[in-house]
Design a protein around this nucleic acid. Structure first.
Lengths: 204, 204
DNA sequence: CGCATTTTTGCCGATCCGGCAGAATCTTCG
DNA sequence: CGAAGATTCTGCCGGATCGGCAAAAATGCG
């Protein structure tokens, strides 16, 4: 039972985050004040601060929400499925933007590009990655019967997956001509689960 | 030929960073103002800002310097050595604190603990990791004859190694009773280079 | 020593940041 | 429905951050 309150809160949060993304894409982070974002979202500056500590956090929030869904999706995969298979599917489902058939939301793509490009956003992005990794580690631990507190394994897997997604994203943004995201993700994860052997020859 | 100028500049930088670490360990990040750090290091607050954008950056700077050395060390490894062997040695050399024989610097350990513990430092730490990963990726690319711009491989490896070091560090800090860092690092990297297979049974 | 270059510093306005308390809004319960 | 209770929004405010600017100090060089 989600009351009106919860819903409005989430609405405000998303409105603020989207406003922050739009404005930062438009003017660059240096040209955006917290006040501007608050106004764009129709709340006071003080309210902005009730939701986010910094402008960068607001920008990164949409990315965080997406990232956290990987763990959700992993838990949703059938129990019998091998871990890396499940991880690949989970990541593909939640991050496989830019498929050949459906064009991704241009605002979102511009937003991601800004997040990767603007140095002022890197901190928040990395913090996002860390949070997502922790959540994913818990899901991996549950699936593999390990303990995040005692075993190195789940956090290692989570961090490695995060690294793979990050590397794939960066590569995807740079790609010219554009390539679909899905295959890049699959390639990165497959390499990971094969132990990252040195590429034998030119595999351009 | 490094002039007096260069040397003094580096000295000031390190003095500021160490001062920041000491004070943050002592009072927590919330209890430290930039002004305090500047005073402790014997320079003006404005000068602090010539070196670091934020207090957190100053704290993380020693860690950054260490992290960048992994790439140096990798380049120093013999060319014939397999990549993962070289990576393991490089990481072990630069990060293998807490060996059974020599106790690590307590101030440094407390500093690392603070960096991992204090949420206010996470952003700077992650930024550090990202910078180090980029540098390491370049070294990996050189060694494997790949191109960081075109190939996914070097960044993927660098990010994965960073993840392994991070997971090992976190685990090391939590370990009670304390365990030496070296073996943890080796374990993490070996698992990586074996494709992170699911742990078969209880391997407590 | 005297000049060129680089670094340090004080000054200052814009902005950030978060505690506080009252107003506004939603929720629960009689 | 209406009042009490809980939560959120907002204005106010002072301390701290942040970075541009130009004068002063330190360093390097001929």
């Amino acid at each position: 039972m989600v009351g009106l309150r919860e819903r409005k809160k989430l609405e405000t949060r998303r409105a603020l985050s989207w406003a922050a993304i739009r404005l930062v894409v438009e003017r660059g982070i240096a040209g955006v004040r917290v006040e501007d974002v608050a106004e764009e979202a129709g709340v006071s500056e003080r309210t902005f601060r009730n939701y986010f500590a910094t402008l960068a956090d607001a920008v990164a929030d949409r990315h965080l929400e997406r990232s956290l869904q990987i763990a959700d999706e992993l838990r949703r995969r059938p129990a019998g499925e091998p871990l890396w298979e499940a991880l690949r599917r989970a990541v593909e489902t939640r991050f496989g933007l830019g498929a050949a058939d459906s064009a991704p939301d241009p605002v979102w793509v511009a937003g991601v590009r800004a997040m990767v490009t603007e140095p002022g956003l890197h901190g928040a992005m990395q913090k996002t990655a860390a949070t997502a990794a922790e959540t994913l580690a818990a899901a991996v631990a549950d699936r593999t019967g390990t303990d995040p507190e005692r075993d190195l394994y789940p956090k290692l897997v989570a961090a490695a997956v995060g690294a793979a997604v990050g590397a794939a994203t960066e590569h995807w943004l740079r790609a010219d001509p554009p390539v679909p995201m899905g295959p890049l993700l699959v390639e990165a994860l497959d390499r990971l689960s094969s132990g990252l052997p040195e590429p034998s020859e030119e595999d351009a």
